[in-house]
Write a protein that binds this DNA or RNA. Structure first.
Length: 468
RNA sequence: GGCGUGGUGCCCAAGUGGUCUAAGGGAGUGGUCUGCAAAACCAUUAUUCACCGGUUCGAAUCCGGUCCACGCCUCCA
């Protein structure tokens, strides 16, 4: 079954044709570890997780690289402000980042190269660019990439450099570069860098931001690879610069498919570090939301569409996931003997097909979730009819497990909550009252239990107590 | 100024030339069940897809124009 992606390079939905059959190599722009990542960052990481899981669902072997930017203006600035060594400072946020990924059930990438551990590769790449005449050393000692030497510059962002207004806030006089748009490959050391410096053929200094992605993707994925992902705002200039560096140095196509994820908004406003209106995962965990609930919210909007994040949506996610949980509990309780009826097999297969087609069609999550909800509804209906066999219930649960390899939001083996003895006693007293048709007492006890956080549910064949 | 995205029911949202009198979720309403609830299920809520014009046997889907909202061009996923 073919898989399709919307390729930003051509602004079209295209069939995915990997360089090597059955394998997908992807590179993802990772975090700059100078602070805790916020929920908007995680929107992107969850999109990339969905992408790799969708590829795997369709049988691809995935090799993903995600870089960690642990040296740049911000990490240097903030580590100095904190009075810490750079590596000690970034270590804290690296660890926090991996912990957050775990909470959100983001599958780990195959490689997480850190910029500071690949200085040698970056210098090597800059050497090639210098050798081929694409880069030059300016009077300030920095090495710049000369955009004028790379005519294809702007092909991803569809920017024609001739027509660009010189940025309103750029003071051209401050720069030693030949052209304002030229970007730094290597930054010569200055006092603000403190003790952060590496030796290079061009004097001591540190790499520019863009060069790390080109150098590290080349090392782990090759000169040309299948998929490059990132946030829409990284498209220009960062990804454009990556293309320029890599294609100038290697003389071949850098990436075949570019996938960009839209922004996350909070209550209708753009969220960003500079605006300061952001939630970290910690903030939301403190409010009592689980990783699965947040994952459900971040997963639910198609990646190319702006996602409006609200706490209301998180509350809703809890209720929705509870609906599934209730179904799983019901299915696990089925004991009827018997085979799996043909119609059940057909029903399950139909929903599986819808799900697979949807997730393979540029990650159409809405349609994929529709399939999941359709299975929920049909399963409930079958359960209610009372004819469901244990084998059928297991087949349905197996299908949810299959969906869960992509979604990873369900607990497929939920357990009934432990009910404290005093709560149980009250519930039993209520049943007694109901039996005697003393509904006033029964309802009073039900209200009292509700105040204590427990809910009594009467079923045709009994009753149960569950937490609110 | 340049580049780009989007406007689908009360809300979120899929669908991008015929099976669309438009999927799915939320909310509402009616019903089955229940002592009453809850849960679950059933029914119901867009002859219509921002607006105007065009192409076509046929358009939410293509083309042109208008209006509105938003993003990037500057560190940011």
């Amino acid at each position: 079954m073919p898989v399709y992606f919307f390729n930003t390079m051509n602004r079209r939905r295209e069939e995915f044709k990997p360089l090597k059959d059955g394998e997908a190599k992807m590179y993802t722009c990772g975090p700059t570890v100078y602070n805790y990542a916020h929920i908007g960052n995680f929107r992107a990481y969850i999109f990339e997780d969905l992408l790799r899981r969708a590829l795997k669902y369709h049988g691809y072997k995935v090799t993903q690289v995600m870089n960690l930017t642990d040296v740049d203006d911000k990490t240097i600035r903030d580590s100095q402000a904190a009075g810490k060594e750079l590596t000690d400072y970034t270590k804290v946020y690296k660890e926090a980042f991996f912990n957050d990924l775990k909470v959100l059930k983001v599958d780990p990438a195959e490689h997480y190269p850190a910029a500071t551990e690949h200085i040698k590769e970056m210098i090597g790449l800059i050497k090639i660019l210098m050798g081929k005449g694409f880069a030059y050393q300016a009077e300030d000692g920095c090495i710049y990439f000369s955009i004028a030497k790379f005519p294809a510059y702007g092909k991803l962002a569809k920017i024609d450099m001739e027509n660009q207004q010189a940025g309103v806030r750029i003071n051209t006089d401050e720069y030693a570069k030949d052209s304002v748009a030229d970007f730094a490959l290597w930054k010569a050391w200055d006092e603000a860098d403190g003790n952060i410096a590496w030796d290079s053929p061009w004097g001591k200094g540190r790499p520019g931001w863009h060069i790390e992605c080109s150098a590290m993707s080349m090392k782990y994925l090759g000169k040309t690879f299948d998929i490059h992902t990132g946030g829409i705002d990284n498209m220009f200039p960062h990804h454009e610069d990556e293309i320029a560096q890599s294609e100038a140095a290697n003389g071949c196509t850098y990436v075949n498919y570019w996938l960009h994820c839209a922004h996350l908004m909070v209550d209708g406003d753009k969220m960003s570090k500079s605006l300061g209106n952001f939630y970290t995962l910690r903030d939301l965990e403190e409010k009592g939301y689980s990783g699965e609930e947040l994952r459900w919210v971040l997963l639910g909007t198609h990646y190319r569409k702006k996602l409006n994040f609200t706490l209301d949506a998180c509350d809703q996610a809890r209720i929705t996931l509870m609906r599934f949980r209730e179904l799983f509990l019901k299915l696990l309780s089925v004991e009827n003997e018997g085979d799996v009826r043909e119609e059940i097999t057909t029903m399950i297969a139909g929903h599986k097909k819808q799900f697979g087609d949807a997730i393979g069609d540029d990650l159409n999550i809405s349609d994929a979730l529709a399939a999941v909800f359709n299975l929920l509804r049909d399963s409930n209906r079958e359960f209610d009819s009372g004819s469901l066999t244990k084998a059928e219930a297991e087949a349905i649960l197996a299908q949810f497990a299959d969906f869960n390899t992509v979604l990873d939001v369900f607990d497929l083996e939920p357990e009934e909550a432990e009910v404290p003895a005093d709560i149980m006693t009250m519930a039993e007293k209520r049943q007694e009252a109901r039996k005697n048709r003393d509904f006033a007492t029964a309802d009073a006890l039900r209200d009292e239990l509700k105040d204590k956080g427990w809910f009594i549910e009467d079923n045709p064949d009994g009753w149960r107590v569950k937490p609110l």
